[in-house]
Design a protein around this nucleic acid. Structure first.
Lengths: 205, 205
DNA sequence: GCCTGTGAAGCTATTCACAGCT
DNA sequence: AGCTGTGAATAGCTTCACAGGC
């Protein structure tokens, strides 16, 4: 019912609210959240309608109250178990960022084709052979997988994960993946984004 | 005039056409491009209107002809010089992907705060101290910068680049950046995307 | 005055649907 | 029949604008 674009921005507002809380800020107005979040004040208020937390015309929103409301809204009631496939540079970057940041979203396993990495612990995450992926995803009830593997392999990896009962996929390979309806998929095409900016950067000369 | 979303998809079609050409495929229909590109046939045809290449109801599009037309449309006439700021895992992943793939989009310099990396060559790209960024961007006529630095630093780096005359920015830090009008900016918020999928993956249970 | 919450308007992007071609 | 190219319709997202509150 809440649109994916709104969810993405709520995730951003959450981080902004965490920074504000760390800075000791007690209250915040929609236009302040907007300027930090690259949106408009109306957009922020519209997004916050989804979480159902009410602000106050004098003080704006209570940082702690709004933060709690957004977390309740976004976070699953029980920790959600995730996996990452591919422990190259991109995989490591993602592991490093997520480490200890989101208790409700835990990357509990990594999978990798390169045998020399299997059995190691990378950024606090155990690396398994990719052959064991289907079994481990089932056994450990892993719901979401992050795909940081080459384009040529990604569809096959996705198919295996779908077969293992995955619920969501985040794909970083520069080709979109196909998955049955009911599975949440986001393709993050870094190449396309860079080429897009390169194109737009020409026009404005 | 052509929308950024369309440009992003054209970049994807270009890669698909390159794969098709390598496979020796001579002609392709809009619905085939669509199924490989995660779009609909109507969307593909609509996007291709921008490049002005005409297909044929019998054979569809000539792979080589369409590829040439898309490249002419997307690529700058002269090679565009780009830089990357931050040579951590994410920076290396991007360098590795772009290496030798886009002759018209060349990452010619990297910048890094960590002094132990400066002076090295990473993935074929020379790493400079970040203090020298403004000078080098000006001298080497660098138009686009990819920001792979921590959130706390990214706005300051962006400001410096704007001051140095940059035309476009691709930001991977988990906070949006502000830039004056006329500068092309894309924020790729990996965290927000993963949280979005985690949220959507719950609904379908 | 300056804020919030929200109906209504406006805009952008996608999809439909069909004429035209072979 | 099955495709392309495209006007028209639709859906989705964002912004406007204003009532209501202090």
């Amino acid at each position: 019912m809440t649109s994916p674009t709104t969810i993405g921005r709520l995730s951003l507002y959450r981080r902004i609210l965490q920074w504000l809380a760390e800075e000791g800020v007690k209250n915040v107005f929609s236009h302040e959240l907007a300027s930090r979040g690259g949106a408009t004040a109306a957009q922020v208020r519209r997004d916050l309608m989804a979480v159902g937390y009410e602000g106050n015309p004098q003080r704006g929103y209570s940082v702690s109250g709004l933060l709690a409301a957004v977390e309740t809204f976004l976070d699953p009631p029980d920790p959600l178990r995730m996996a990452i496939v591919g422990v190259g540079n991109l995989g490591r970057a993602i592991l490093a960022f997520f480490r200890d940041r989101r208790p409700k979203l835990r990357i509990v396993a990594a999978f990798e084709r390169d045998p020399s990495l299997c059995g190691q612990v990378v950024r606090g995450c155990p690396v398994n052979a990719i052959d064991r992926m289907e079994t481990i995803v089932r056994e450990q009830d892993i719901r979401v997988a992050i795909l940081a593997v080459p384009a040529a392999e990604v569809q096959q990896v996705a198919d295996t994960l779908v077969h293992a009962g995955i619920h969501g996929l985040v794909n970083f390979a520069p080709t979109p993946i196909r998955a049955p309806k009911g599975i949440a998929v986001e393709d993050m095409d870094i190449t396309a984004t860079i080429e897009k900016v390169a194109y737009m950067a020409r026009g404005g000369v």
